[in-house]
Design a binder for these strands. Structure first.
Length: 565
RNA sequence: GCGAGCAUAGUCUAGGGGUCAGGACAGGGGCUUCCCAAGCCUCUGGCGCGGGUUCGAAUCCCGCUGCUCGCACCA
């Protein structure tokens, strides 16, 4: 089944293993002509759901980033696993985990320290008691050097998300300083997997479609939640062994999903995947176990699709990343990444302050004046009498009342700054691509059919002159041109028998076929065939482009045309 | 990264130390008023890479790479 799908995908131009003529390299795939179109269509559908409908605009950032970003985000730490290999049995172990199993705190230690500890405690292989080799680090990020010579260390991004956090203030201004707002990005990300062996499911270079939605954590309600509140979703909460099917509202009310925002995107994601043609029964949302959750996440639900080959695979992660990332980058960059929350009522803050009078202090204390003033400011008003003593570099200065005053200030505070929290739906486009291929594949009379939805199908309509004799090809090419003027891909084929051509067309998932025959020359009609039923209907040639457009857009069903004729 | 198995056209496969590596399907061209992989003619295309043994290697040996499975890894 899996082999069959991959065979079709490779043979018919959806996928090619990369670098084949140089021997190939696992973890990399080329999308062929039809694959690239299908992928593009998935991305466009995603844009419709997550940009257009949600009002989240898309940005596009570099795939290479300087190392500081990943130091700040925690990726350098989390992507560099210390690994140790047994010299006898050859098994690999996470070196820090090994130490921890001996109750030795190893979190955050570098590999030299861990190596030292292993030698010092004489720790042996837990499997065969053989002696352990040197601790090595394994980094899942691809490293590179920016600029020649010594260059700055950089990494290929392991997720598209970071660039959106970094741009927070720019984007916050773009959205005119209002929360919530969202930003989207479709782009490549890179992870140097140790041994990727699951085709499109685990790639070293892959495409993510991510949205970062910045919200005020005091308001987790979603203004459009109503719209989805009564929709049912299949959930697998972390404390259960089986899925439950409940409405979005129930999931929030029962405290299963943390809040409306997450719940809303679970439903929205479900609807997107259904629009991709994934059958609802092959879809569920699984909550991450506590220990499984990333260091930044508060709650995370994965959309999973059931595949025959790999079982349940994660295709989307919907996480509440809290304010982890914005705070991390604030710290890392020294730049504030905050939003402003206005109070319902402004607060008046009264403050009593000691204010050094510089016009007196200056002439009297000359070069010491600045330091003395600083010390005065740091005193609390209660500590002061008519005079204060200041110690500075061993000398004691007595400052009398004429050099400072005590002032009461009133400040109106209209609100406060805070780090917004981030809700992140993150999609693995390649995995969705695979799922679509797998779930759309069927066999009919020993022939392969890809029942890709009309919206996603790489080619929308085949154009077949029944035989090669004029005027059939001429009419066919003319129809093809008129359809293409509506920005719809057509597939013209005049070779071989008509049955063979239908079979070829079905195998690459073209949902409709137009066949031009001699019967229709006089009456100016052609037949329209539906891939999934093989049914045909004779329609006026003039109407073809408009019908095809409606069929592709989902505004019309083949059945409707059939019934009307 | 470890262990095991595998590697022949686009795909599936036959064979095998020495004149031709054979077939099927797919693909190209041609003929056929041909509606669900029809037929006939014709053409294209292959022993994963590197080294060794040998007079001679696609075949035997070694290494590499890739694929499949198990282990490990999978923020």
């Amino acid at each position: 089944m899996h082999e069959k799908i991959i065979e079709i995908a490779v043979r018919r131009g959806f996928l090619y293993p990369s670098f084949e003529i140089y021997g190939g390299l696992s973890g990399f795939y080329d999308y062929g002509p039809l694959g690239a179109l299908l992928k593009k269509n998935i991305e466009d559908l995603w844009r419709n759901y997550f940009c257009l409908q949600e009002g989240f605009l898309e940005i596009s950032s570099p795939t290479i980033s300087p190392e500081e970003i990943f130091i700040a985000s925690g990726h350098t730490g989390n992507f560099t696993d210390p690994i140790v290999k047994c010299t006898k049995c050859g098994n690999f172990f996470r070196a820090d985990h090994l130490l921890q199993s001996y109750d030795i705190e190893a979190e955050g230690l570098n590999s030299d320290k861990i190596d030292h500890l292993i030698k010092e405690r004489n720790i042996k292989c837990p499997d065969c008691s053989g002696s352990l080799g040197k601790v090595k680090t394994f980094n899942l990020m691809f490293k590179t050097y920016i600029s020649p010579g010594k260059g700055k260390v950089g990494y290929l991004r392991p997720e598209t998300a970071q660039s959106m956090f970094i741009l927070f203030t720019r984007l916050y201004n773009f959205y005119r300083r209002k929360l919530p707002f969202g930003v989207a990005q479709i782009g490549r990300a890179y992870r140097n997997e140790i041994s990727p062996r699951q085709g499109l499911i685990r790639l070293r270079e892959f495409t993510q479609a991510e949205v970062e939605i910045f919200i005020d954590p005091r308001n987790n309600n979603h203004t459009k939640f109503q719209q989805y509140a009564e929709e049912k979703v299949r959930l697998l909460p972390r404390d259960r062994d089986d899925t439950i099917e409940i409405t979005a509202r129930e999931s929030v009310d029962l405290g299963i999903v943390a809040h409306e925002f997450l719940s809303y995107y679970i439903v929205h994601t479900k609807n997107f995947l259904l629009a991709c043609g994934i059958p609802e029964e092959k879809l569920r949302f699984r909550q991450h176990l506590l220990e499984e959750m990333a260091h930044y996440a508060r709650d995370c639900w994965d959309a999973e699709i059931y595949t025959r080959q790999f079982g349940w695979i994660e295709v989307v992660g919907i996480a509440d990343r809290t304010d982890y990332d914005l705070r991390a980058h604030e710290k890392g960059s020294g730049t504030e990444l905050k939003a402003f929350r206005e109070y319902v009522k402004p607060e008046i803050v009264r403050e009593i302050k000691i204010e050094p009078l510089m016009n007196k202090l200056g002439p009297a204390f000359k070069s010491k004046a600045g330091d003395i003033a600083e010390k005065i400011r740091n005193l609390s008003p209660e500590e002061t009498g008519d005079e204060i003593k200041i110690e500075l570099e061993g000398d004691v200065y007595t400052i009398s009342r004429e050099y400072f005053c005590i002032k009461e200030t009133k400040k109106k505070i209209t609100g406060e700054k805070f780090n917004p929290h981030v809700i992140e739906p993150s999609f693995g486009i390649d995995r969705i691509f695979y799922s679509i291929l797998e779930t759309s594949y069927i066999e009919r009379d020993g022939k392969n059919i890809l029942r890709i939805s009309p919206a996603l199908a790489p080619m929308k309509v085949s154009i077949f002159p029944l035989v090669k004799k004029e005027p059939l090809p001429e009419i066919a090419l003319d129809i093809s041109d008129r359809i293409k003027r509506k920005s719809i891909f057509t597939y013209y084929d005049e070779n071989d028998s008509i049955g063979r051509r239908y079979a070829r067309s079905d195998e690459v998932g073209i949902p409709y076929s137009i066949t031009i025959d001699f019967d229709g020359v006089e009456s100016k009609t052609v037949t329209l065939r539906d891939r999934d039923t093989t049914e045909q209907v004779r329609i006026k040639t003039d109407k073809v482009p408009a019908f095809i457009k409606k069929l592709v857009d989902g505004d019309l069903k083949f059945r409707d045309i059939k019934e009307a004729h």
